[in-house]
C-alpha cells in the first residue's frame, strides 16, 4: 500500500521533471538566441565598413529570391483580379477592383506571402549553410585564426536579409498590382481609368504603404534572425542540420503569421 503510493509519487516527479526540462531547455535557447542577436547587432558597424561582404550575401539572399517572388506575385495578383471581379461584379462595383487588389497586396499579401517565400527559399538555405559550416568545423577554424565568425559570416547575412526583405515585398506588390491589372483591365474589361484612379484615391501612402514596408522590415529581421540562429545552434551532424532547417521554416512561418496579426492590430485596428 505504502509502496504503490511511493511509486505514484515517483511518477509524478518524473512527469514534473520532464516539463521542467523542456521549459528550461526552451528558455536557455531563447537566451542563447538573444545573446546571439546582441553579438550580431554589435558587429553591424564594422561590417558596414566592408560593404563587399554584404553585397555577396545580397546576391545569394536577395537576387536569387527575386524570380520566385516575381512569379508568385504575378499569380497572386492575377487570382485576386479574377476572384475580386466575380464577387464585385455581383454588386456592380467592378471599378473598385483596383482598390481591392492594391489594398490587399500592399497591406497584407505583399509582406506576408513574400516573407513566407523568403523563409522557404532564403531562410532555409541560410540555416543549412551555417549549420554545415559548423558541422565541418569551419566556424571553429575561423575562431582558431582569430577571425570572429559572427562578424565575418553571420552579420553580413543578417544585414543582407534585413535589407532585401522590404525590396522583395515591394517587388511582389508591384508585380501583383500589374498582374491584377492584366486580368482585370485587359481580360475582363474593367475601365482602366477607374481602376487606377480609385486605387490612388483610396490607398494612402503613409497608412497603407509605409506600414506594409515596416511589416516587411520586421519580418526580414525575424526570419534572418531565426534562420541564422538555428544554423549556428544546430547539432553539428547531418541529422542536426536537417532538423534545424525544418525548424527554421516552421518557426519562421509561425513568427510571420503571429507577428502579422499583432502588427495589423497595432497599425490598422483600434485594439
Amino acid at each position: 500500500m505504502t509502496y504503490s503510493h511511493l511509486g505514484q509519487n515517483l511518477n509524478m516527479i518524473t512527469f514534473l521533471s520532464v516539463i521542467g526540462q523542456s521549459v528550461i531547455a526552451n528558455l536557455t535557447k531563447t537566451g542563447r538566441g538573444t545573446l546571439f542577436l546582441k553579438q550580431t547587432l554589435s558587429c553591424t558597424f564594422s561590417v558596414l565598413c566592408h560593404p563587399r561582404l554584404i553585397i555577396k550575401q545580397l546576391f545569394s539572399v536577395g537576387v536569387l529570391t527575386v524570380l520566385i517572388i516575381t512569379i508568385s506575385g504575378l499569380f497572386v495578383g492575377m487570382v485576386l483580379g479574377l476572384q475580386g471581379y466575380y464577387i464585385l461584379s455581383d454588386f456592380g462595383a467592378e471599378e473598385t477592383l483596383g482598390v481591392m487588389i492594391a489594398a490587399s497586396l500592399v497591406r497584407e499579401l505583399g509582406p506576408v506571402v513574400s516573407a513566407l517565400l523568403f523563409a522557404g527559399r532564403a531562410g532555409s538555405s541560410l540555416t543549412a549553410e551555417i549549420g554545415l559550416m559548423k558541422a565541418t568545423e569551419q566556424l571553429a577554424g575561423m575562431e582558431m585564426m582569430a577571425v570572429d565568425p559572427i562578424q565575418r559570416i553571420i552579420c553580413p547575412r543578417f544585414l543582407a536579409g534585413c535589407l532585401s526583405m522590404p525590396l522583395l515585398a515591394a517587388i511582389f506588390s508591384m508585380v501583383g498590382v500589374l498582374g491584377g491589372q492584366l486580368v482585370g483591365v485587359t481580360l475582363l474589361g474593367v475601365d482602366e481609368g477607374a481602376f487606377w484612379s480609385q486605387m490612388q484615391s483610396n490607398i494612402d501612402f503613409y497608412d497603407d504603404i509605409l506600414n506594409g514596408v515596416i511589416k516587411s522590415l520586421v519580418f526580414g529581421f525575424v526570419i534572418t534572425w531565426i534562420s541564422l540562429f538555428e544554423g549556428y545552434d544546430a547539432i553539428p551532424t547531418a541529422e542536426g542540420v536537417s532538423r534545424a532547417t525544418t525548424r527554421t521554416v516552421v518557426y519562421s512561418s509561425f513568427a510571420i503569421l503571429g507577428m502579422d496579426f499583432i502588427l495589423t492590430a497595432l497599425m490598422f485596428g483600434d485594439i
Binding site: A102, V106, A170, S173, M174, V177, W196, M199, Q200, S201, I203, D204, F205, D208, I209
Partner: peptide
C-alpha cells in the same frame, strides 16, 4: 511605383 502609381503620394 507603388508610392506614385498605387497610392495618393
Amino acid at each position: 511605383f507603388i508610392g506614385m502609381k498605387v497610392s495618393n503620394l
